[in-house]
């Protein structure tokens, strides 16, 4: 139906003269066809943004495997990392890297902590980069529309079970100077990829797989990934 309407409008266009009218008609065509297209996709997808965010945020503790590629502006090849990612609404986001080095990073609202095997966790120096991590990653993983809308303009696309979300920082938001855009994509209620673009030459790609909801973290995970003291008072 949308295609037929476009053809009809194109015929009208050929008969109309005058630049202003042509521009106006072109704009109308784009807006209308876009709207029709989105509504057609929504019709095909069981998801909408609110439903997706509600589903993603419903799990308060999730564990996934991840692969991270860092593209730096000063280097032609990316640096690759692998590990296990654990999200806990209360304890923060823990990234347990296994390749190429073993290291755990815990991102909390107040600070970023780092621990290498066998050593006590230490607070990482506050820097533009660590502030960025805290501000962006924690907000993103909350999947809270209100939180997102406070800092980003949201564009969502759905195609059956697959979806993608583009977060563009609002001009007056705190994150505007930190990030150019964030792209999140996934399937059904699982996030598959996260791309954080600092600028056109620097970005971080995170591929996420094998996500599973966790009822309760084992003691060893609490100790090693979230740096929580265990009952016997030991710290990693």
């Amino acid at each position: 139906m949308a295609a037929a309407a476009s053809v009809a409008l194109a015929q009208v266009y050929s008969e109309v003269e005058g630049l202003v009218i042509r521009v106006l008609l072109c704009a109308c065509l784009l807006v209308w066809s876009g709207a029709v297209s989105l509504s057609a996709e929504e019709e095909r997808s069981p998801w909408d943004l609110d439903a997706l965010l509600q589903s993603l945020s419903s799990a308060s503790a999730v564990e996934s495997e991840f692969r991270e590629s860092r593209h730096r502006g000063f280097r032609r090849v990316p640096a690759d990392f692998r590990g296990t990612m654990r999200w806990d609404a209360e304890l923060g986001l823990s990234l347990s890297y296994s390749e190429p080095r073993t290291q755990v990073m815990l991102i909390r609202s107040d600070a970023v902590f780092q621990s290498q095997r066998g050593r006590s966790p230490r607070r990482m120096p506050s820097s533009e980069e660590s502030d960025f991590l805290r501000a962006i990653l924690l907000d993103v993983f909350r999947f809270d529309r209100a939180v997102w809308e406070a800092s980003f303009d949201i564009v969502a696309e759905f195609d059956e079970d697959r979806w993608s979300i583009l977060l563009n920082p609002l001009e007056d938001s705190e994150v505007a100077g930190m990030v150019e855009r964030i792209e999140i994509s996934g399937e059904a209620d699982a996030v598959r990829q996260l791309e954080i673009w600092r600028d056109e030459r620097s970005r971080v790609e995170i591929e996420i797989r094998d996500s599973r909801t966790v009822e309760q973290w084992p003691e060893s995970v609490l100790r090693e990934a979230f740096f929580r003291e265990t009952e016997d008072g030991e710290e990693p």
């Binding site: 730096r72 990234l95 190429p100 080095r101 290291q103 660590s130 991590l133």
Partner: peptide, 13 residues
């Protein structure tokens, strides 16, 4: 740069 936490220095490198 192969250290996971090296990102904090990216701006200075």
């Amino acid at each position: 740069l192969a250290e996971p936490d090296a990102f904090v220095w990216d701006e200075l490198i």
